[in-house]
Structures are given as C-alpha cells and as structure tokens.
C-alpha cells in the first residue's frame, strides 16, 4: 500500500467545521495558528513543558503542541477565541481582567483554557495529587492548594500566579464550578 505523508482531516474548531489536508508532521497547534489563523493558542516551548498551547479537545484540556493534527481528526476543539461570543467575556475571562491575572498575556490563553478544563475535571470529582490519597470517595474541595496543583501545568514567567488562583477560585465560587 502506498503511504502518504499528508492526510485529510476534519475537525470542528470553535463550532466551525473544517476539512483540510495536512502535513502529517503538523501539530494541532500549528494547524490552529497557521492554517486557521487562530493565534490565541501560543507556542511557548513546543515540547509540552509550559502549557501556553492548551486548548480543549472534546472538552478536555490538552496540549496542542504535542497533539498531531492528524490525530485530532474528528474531534471538537475549543480555543480561547471560542470561549465566548465575539465582544463578550466568559466569567473566567472577566475575572482575569478585573483581578489582573496576567501581565504580558502570553501564557493567558493557555491558563484560561486550562482553568475551564480543570474546573470541569473538578466538578466531575477528579482527584489531584494533593488529595488523591485521602478518602477515595470524597470530591476534594477546591481551595488554593488544589487550584495551584491542578494548574501547575501552566507556567507564568510574569509571576501572575496569585491573581490567577484568585480569579479561578472566584469564578468557581460564583459559577458553582462552571467557568
């Protein structure tokens, strides 16, 4: 059988349907940025070490830099651009602005997508490394320690961590979990 180095993929991105032929080497991050012009997801390291490229893939937070575009075929992707309607902000976005949960803003799309995915994981009762050893049936309460551990895959060199944690906790409290 002849092998090809390009593949046709179909995926939904921020509710829009796309079908395109991609170089098998292309990552989901580069597909979003180069093919679709969605430059919200950022490339901070390209090796899974910073979290700036975080997007939601079938509602789970993932690193788009280590996801091959071909492997994301037939999934639904949400980037930071798709979290709210044009001209509007989702509560977590509004909280980031109001509480100054960023400075340069480069890690911010990743932090926000990660927070959205993380809050859903928590709402689904997922444990974290700080609580998993406790009672296995307990859903851990979301406090600062929990948020910090769960968000640790998103580095911020500007050091906006304290206000990011505040924004996440405030959003969680106001929304009863949903971001």
């Amino acid at each position: 059988m002849i092998d090809h180095t390009r593949t046709d993929v179909s995926l939904r991105v921020n509710e829009a349907f796309h079908r395109l032929s991609v170089d098998n080497r292309r990552t989901l991050l580069d597909l979003l940025r180069e093919d679709l012009g969605l430059t919200g997801p950022k490339k901070g390291c390209d090796h899974g070490q910073c979290g700036a490229c975080t997007v939601l893939c079938d509602d789970r937070r993932v690193l788009s830099c280590l996801t091959l575009a071909v492997a994301a075929d037939a999934t639904a992707v949400t980037t930071v651009e798709g979290l709210a309607a044009e001209g509007e902000l989702r509560p977590i976005q509004e909280a980031f602005v109001r509480l100054d949960g960023f400075q340069c803003g480069f890690c911010t799309p990743g932090q926000i997508c990660s927070a959205v995915g993380m809050l859903a994981e928590h709402a689904a009762g997922w444990p974290s490394a700080v609580t998993a050893g406790d009672a296995p049936d307990r859903v851990p309460e979301l406090d600062e320690t929990e948020v910090r551990e769960r968000m640790s895959g998103n580095l911020c060199r500007c050091g906006a961590y304290p206000s990011i944690v505040r924004a996440v906790l405030e959003t969680a409290a106001r929304q009863g979990g949903a971001a």
Binding site: G48, G51, T54, C57, R60, R61, V62, L63, L66, T67, S114, G117, M118, E121, P127, S128, A129, A132, R150, M151, S152, G153, N154
Partner: peptide, 12 residues
C-alpha cells in the same frame, strides 16, 4: 499517576 506530568498531559 497524578504526581506525574500535568493535567493536560495526563488527559492524553
């Protein structure tokens, strides 16, 4: 498992 990598990485 939870002490490895990050939430995003563990998700895939």
């Amino acid at each position: 498992v939870l002490s490895g990598a990050s939430g995003q990485l563990r998700n895939v």
